[in-house]
Structure formats: structure tokens, C-alpha cells
Amino acid sequence: MNPVRAGVLAGLTVVASVAAGFGPLAVAAPAGLLLAFVLPGYAITAAMFRREIGMVERSVLVPSLSLAVLVLGGLGLWAAGGHLNRAGWTLLCAVVTLIAIGVAFYRHAKDPEETGRIRFRISQDRLIRDVLPLTLAVLLLAGAGVWSYADSVGTYDIRVSTLSAEPPGPAGADGARTVQISATGLASSAGPWSMVLTGDEGVEISRQAITPDTGGDWTGRLTVPGDERVTVNLFRGGETGAFRTLIIAADAQ
């Protein structure tokens, strides 16, 4: 690796490391992708090979070795007592990349053999023949992907209305238990909401109106008799059937 390329690569590694370590998502994402899939593998490949491998092999070896750095380096870091957090991964990738750049640079300095670098020249003809259809392909894929994502989210990401209770504890000295009840996903427009507690024989124990917050959630603590099996029914609007139901078994003690 000649000095210019080594310098550029080292600089890029440092910048990517800083961006991945401290940058916002828009900056950290591309920097992290470079550190995870490109830079370590590129540097190691340059350190190991000059002309022994072809372009196909080189293009596959770069991400392979980058992933190997993540995995084997991660194992080594963990075995050495390190922590696999953002700083740990960033340092790992950066240090490996810089060391490999150093080795590649040293090999070049020791034996400055021409590596036969190929210069590309993009002609207008090639722009039309290659870039245009490839751009079309990428746009089609991107469009299909974005639309598919939106459709999936729109189809499956529906609001779920739930009624739940924390696992109740034992009854207190007065024979009653306090149960924390939560309701989520309650649309105010579908209200009013009410909660009715009934005992073993279907006798109503209590009734109260529920007013969900702006997010549609409600939480409250209810006191129920410890020696009865209590049913908690949530009613919506004027419906006669319970919208959601909980059952609290009697305290075994």
C-alpha cells in the first residue's frame, strides 16, 4: 500500500471511528457500516495480498475479513475482560484496521512492487450502457422495498387494546388484596369505558368509570376480597358484553 493510500485509509478509519462512536444516527450509520464491512477487511487484504487474488476474490474477501474481525476480535476482547459495547467494537475495528494498514505500508516500503492498479474511466457510452440500467434497478428495488415496508407496517401494526393485572400478592390482614390493573389502547372516542368487578356468585363488587389518558392508557389499583374469585370486566360504550376480562383466583392461603 503506497503512502498516499495508507494515509487516506488511516484518516478515513479515524474519522469513521469518531463518527461511529460519537455521531448521530445519520453519521454513525454509514461510518459503522464502513467499520463493520469494509475498512478492516480492506486493510487486512492489502496487508496479505498484492496480486495473488483477483478482483472477484478481493471483493468478497474484504467483507469476509471485516466480519471475522468483529467475531474473532469480539471473542478475544471478551476473553481479555473487555466490554463489548460501542466503544469496544469501535476501538477493536479501528485498531485492527490501523495495524493492518501499517503492515501493508511496511510491505510496500520494503518491496515497492507495482501492484498493477487499474484506473477506471467512465465514458458517456458506459454511463448509458451500465449506470442507467443499474440506477433503474436500484430505484425499482428501493421503491419496492419502501412500499413493502410501509404496507407491512400498515397491515400489522394495529392498535391492541389490552386489560391486564400484575400477579397479585397474598391477602393482607383484612383479608383483601390490592391488584394493579392496567388497560392500554383504549380509544377515547369508543368510550365511555367502565370497569365492573364481580365475585364468585356473579355479585357485583364494584363499578367505576375509566378515563384513559391521551395515549389511551389507564392504570389503577383495585382492592379485591382475598377469599373470592374475582372477575374484572372492562366495558366499552354501551355494550352489554365485556370488552376485556380478567379473572383473579382466590388467595390459596
Binding site: 454513525a28 450509520a29 466480519l67 469480539g74 463489548l84 459495547n85 469501535t90
Partner: peptide
């Protein structure tokens, strides 16, 4: 898991 965790932490995704 290391690949996924590494990428997630490096990119913030």
C-alpha cells in the same frame, strides 16, 4: 450475534 450486535452498536441501528 456478534456480527449483529457489533453492527447495531457501531451504527446505532
Amino acid at each position: 450475534a456478534e456480527m449483529g450486535a457489533g453492527l447495531s452498536l457501531l451504527t446505532g441501528l
